[in-house]
Amino acid sequence: MTATTLRQRGPKHLLSMADLDRDDIEQILNLTESFAEVGERSIPRVPALRGKTIAWLFYEDSTRTRLSFETAAKRLSADTMNFSVGSSSVNKGESLRDTVETIAAMGIDGIVVRHGAAGAPRQVSEWTDASVINAGDGWHQHPTQSLLDLYTARQHLDELDGKHIAIIGDIKHSRVARSNALGFSAMGARVTLVAPPTLLPSTLDGWPVEATHDLDAVLEELDICYLLRMQLERQGQAVVPSLREYHNEYGLTSARADRLPNDALIMHPGPMNRGVEIAGEVADRPAAVITEQVANGVSVRMAVLFLLLGSGLDVVDEQRAIA
């Protein structure tokens, strides 16, 4: 297994977890480990992407993901270029293609795209020679979130094969759920979605998952309890009657958290609504690895940027390059 396989397989982009098989994911997670070590140095910087330029194309507000990618790029010594577009540009009728071609004309190696419309990063990838990394597209995918979740889970559980993860909450409108359903099942885990029918897609054909409306029925067998952020504005949209009822039925209350197995992890992609999908006290328990997820995000994104934009050296050379 060499680090070039991801590139050699063809795709130079990371658009969806569906682009990655188990070997690809393991390769990324293994490389993440090396990069995590870089982050602990007094000068957390390696020259691995020196001379490479990465553009940020964020059509949707994002603080966390954006900062995480920027930190990752800096630690790899890449140059970055910010093409921040308010969501209003889309409404002004600007052609996405024109924007992409403008950026591409400046000479870039990678574009990190976040967009409110599912599929936009895929379109971008058709209009540029640069590598395109999806930093979240509508309800569709957020692959680096899934990779950092997989990395965090693997750190604590060693092996994901046969483990049971419940993803709880607004599945229908969640790119995190779509990414993790694919990511965790690719790694051999059993994935159960837990939500009221109004927060599930009308069909789960094509999803490698099980689904239930009864959180209490699965709690005691979970290795990972993964809570999604509840969009507060969904309340009253005939999706859930009230946030209070949602918390009572689908929230990880203290009582429910007590019923989780001792070594089960509590995860959340952030930002949390304490008191809605997770009780405030539960978010601070040792089992909750939510801030670790954020920390690991930087290392995972370093690995992804390096694999997609790097020099094409094999794994041994890469270890040397970052040494």
């Binding site: 889309v90 409404n91 009728g93 052609s95 996405l96 293609r97 024109d98 967009h115 409110g116 419309a117 599912a118 599929g119 936009a120 379109q123 509508g138």
Partner: peptide
């Protein structure tokens, strides 16, 4: 062409 080069959603 430019209208159809917007994202699928819009």
């Amino acid at each position: 062409r430019q209208a159809k080069e917007r994202p699928f959603l819009t």
